[in-house]
């Protein structure tokens, strides 16, 4: 299941979306999310769907890859749909049983909520799928550079994020290995009550922490050996420069947002 999370993963290919400036993509994603909260009728959702489909098309990331990311948040999705379905007040009651009733408005609300969440997750995974973690942190670092003035260690935060992203797959693999090694010594992670199961995690967590610390020490030394000394006087291999395509994208997103507001108002 942990492998199904596509948020934070990068899909290697070459596309317009991959080439965009990460700041553009960050802002674009934000605009898209805002638009989903503006959306109030069918037409709005249709527009968002078309927009998203277009973006996915442009990204050249297979749809199946993006859809897989939804699996991991299925439970969250079902809960929010459930809430909307049963707890929305409305006039047209469709079904009624015990203390619950499902209204037409509730159904509509639940459906919209589901769409909104699905689009939101697909949209944001699209950003991470087309942006390397490094670009993403670069984007954040440059985009939020003004925070440095108020002494937020934005470079350090960005570096930490990018290292975390690099080591997540390694640590997942390592967890799997340690689990198997303990299972080979008869450890049982599947049966027993909650306390027993929590106890059974100790033989996994201790080696995992030790390994994470060892990796951290090694990495710190390797970074130091390569003259890393924080963000001061650092140049960039891939400095962020807005290109024509970024300006066009900003315009496109502005138009999209305007259309969304208009559709919401008019109908």
């Amino acid at each position: 299941m942990i492998r199904d999370i596509t948020i934070g993963q990068y899909y290697q290919t070459d596309s317009l979306l991959h080439r965009l400036d990460p700041r553009t993509k960050l802002v674009g994603t934000l605009v898209f999310i805002v638009s989903l909260f503006i959306a109030g009728n069918w037409l709005c959702y249709a527009l968002a769907a078309v927009w998203l489909a277009g973006m996915i098309r442009l990204s050249r990331v297979p749809l199946s890859f993006i859809v897989r990311g939804l699996k991991a948040v299925m439970i969250l999705l079902l809960i929010s749909v459930g809430f909307n379905l049963f707890l929305t007040n409305g006039e047209t009651v469709l079904v009624r049983f015990w203390i619950f009733r499902i209204t037409l408005e509730g159904l509509r609300q639940a459906f919209f909520m589901a769409l909104r969440l699905i689009f939101l997750i697909m949209g944001s995974s699209l950003m991470t799928l087309t942006t390397t973690p490094n670009q993403l942190t670069d984007g954040l670092e440059t985009g939020l550079g003004f925070l440095k003035k108020i002494r937020v260690p934005i470079h350090e935060i960005a570096m930490m994020m990018s290292i975390a992203l690099r080591f997540i797959p390694i640590l997942i693999e390592e967890t799997d290995k340690i689990m198997k090694a303990q299972m080979a010594r008869g450890a049982d992670f599947e049966t027993g009550n909650l306390i027993e199961r929590a106890k059974a995690l100790v033989p996994i967590l201790v080696p995992l922490f030790i390994s994470a610390f060892r990796r951290a020490t090694d990495l710190a030394m390797a970074m130091e050996a390569r003259c890393y000394h924080g963000g001061e006087a650092r140049t960039r291999m891939k400095p962020l420069v807005y290109e024509t395509r970024d300006r066009m994208t900003y315009l496109a997103f502005a138009a999209y947002l305007a259309a969304m507001i208009a559709l919401n108002r008019i109908f």
Binding site: K177, I178, K180, A181, Q182, M183, A184, R185, G186, V202, P203, V206, P207, I210, S211
Partner: peptide, 16 residues
């Protein structure tokens, strides 16, 4: 698993 003992690579990493 008790009859077929498996020692993984770098098994010292499983000590806890």
């Amino acid at each position: 698993r008790s009859k077929v003992g498996l020692v993984f690579q770098y098994p010292e990493h499983q000590l806890f």
